[in-house]
Design a protein around this nucleic acid. Structure first.
Lengths: 221, 221
DNA sequence: ATGTCAATAAATATCGATATTTTTGAAAGA
DNA sequence: TCTTTCAAAAATATCGATATTTATTGACAT
């Protein structure tokens, strides 16, 4: 078979490709919350077979981005204000914990990584939103990456992604980047590097809550 | 096709059946930690096609019971002391939170459910370990079921299952049921019904930590 | 109008076969 | 003896077709 696709070279596997594409489509709202995800339709969209699509959807179930109902298929996870606020609250609890643990066992390698990822994030602001989005997540995950608890980090990463989705949902409504997010990030970085757990945590949670309040206002139910 | 199987009536779906069977086999150690899970082999074991097996394994990934490595298949999640202690610590944090939230918004229906599930758990001790295992989980989840945070409850349920696995791993080594677990459960129940969050939480965490210490001792690495 | 039921349409779930990739193992070269 | 290489074997991943289940529609009775 001629394995030529417009994205350039060969992907890892059809399943992984489908997983990444579908994930992105759900996060960015191209597949609206609650929408029925028909295999046949997606099979066409991703031009691949039913098996990879099905498997990708099963994997997205882990991420709580897709719901699976036995014998009647898949749908994009619903979104509503209550769910958003639950995510925000959980995120604050878990990231606070992970950040404090990370600081408690701080070391040079971790601190250097923080500085590095922060630098890259700053640079990426000029390179388009998709790249900034990527770098932003990398920075935030780096903050938690020294907690010594991979599962906790996994939960945080999951919640981070779920939150992105709500950012996209509210993105259209009003002026988002009005706040000085850049200085908020610098606060967090500085406090973390100085091992000031209380200040770092306070800055981080403040960062989330501000965005949260903003998004909450822009949601109906 | 003649759809007659020894379990009695028709299952929901091959995928769901495979999911439940594999999950049970991993939790009880019939599929050892770290073991390579070959599709062909499982296909034989569950006598079903490759698609349901694959999909079941993908779903088990959500539960952190199976690891998936792109292009080189699946394996049962590894188990080791560090992982066990991580689970224990996370469980203590998250269940503490969920229990306190549940008590904070306590109501008659929730309390009655606690009493009921506790009663059933006590009764089930005579009915074999599998049924007790089931009832035990139901009781513990009922304690958290009023937290108002479905995701938090989901995380707790996940961690609960992961913990079961370590119980089975250590089960053979020594006398497990020597402790008076029954009275520990009664403590928790009583405190919860009386809305004494501090005492309920302390009893619950004590319950987990005792078992945890016990299991820890019986593990090598 | 409204609810029920059967026939039809649509979608999901599953199978069996094949293509693709990784692993294995043995021969050749250093 | 230890690598390295390459072909055979094994396992994974994927496709296309089919069986099974759920959803829809319209006739018919209430």
């Amino acid at each position: 078979m001629n394995m030529i696709d417009d994205t350039g070279s060969k992907e890892t596997s059809a399943t992984r490709g489908a997983y990444l594409t579908l994930r992105d489509m759900i996060l960015t709202g191209k597949l609206p919350a609650g929408e029925k995800l028909k295999i046949e339709q997606l099979r066409g969209l991703l031009n691949t077979g039913a098996s990879p699509v099905r498997e990708a959807l099963s994997l997205l179930t882990s991420d709580m981005l897709v719901e699976r109902i036995d014998q009647r298929g898949f749908r994009a996870a619903p979104a509503n204000k209550a769910n958003f606020e639950e995510i925000l609250a959980l995120r604050c609890t878990l990231e606070d914990l992970a950040l404090r643990q990370s600081i408690a066992s701080a070391n040079a390698a971790w601190e250097e990584r923080l500085v590095l990822t922060h630098h890259r994030m700053k640079k990426s602001t000029t390179l388009g939103t998709a790249l900034f989005e990527e770098a932003h997540k990398t920075f935030h995950m780096a903050l938690l990456a020294n907690s010594g608890s991979p599962m906790l980090e996994r939960f945080c990463a999951q919640l981070y992604d779920l939150n992105i989705r709500y950012r996209y949902l509210a993105a259209s409504s009003s002026t988002y980047q009005s706040r000085d997010i850049s200085s908020e990030h610098e606060d967090i970085l500085e406090a973390a590097v100085q091992h000031d757990a209380d200040r770092a945590s306070a800055s981080l949670l403040n960062h989330y809550r501000r965005t949260g309040d903003f998004l909450s206002r822009g949601m109906d139910a």
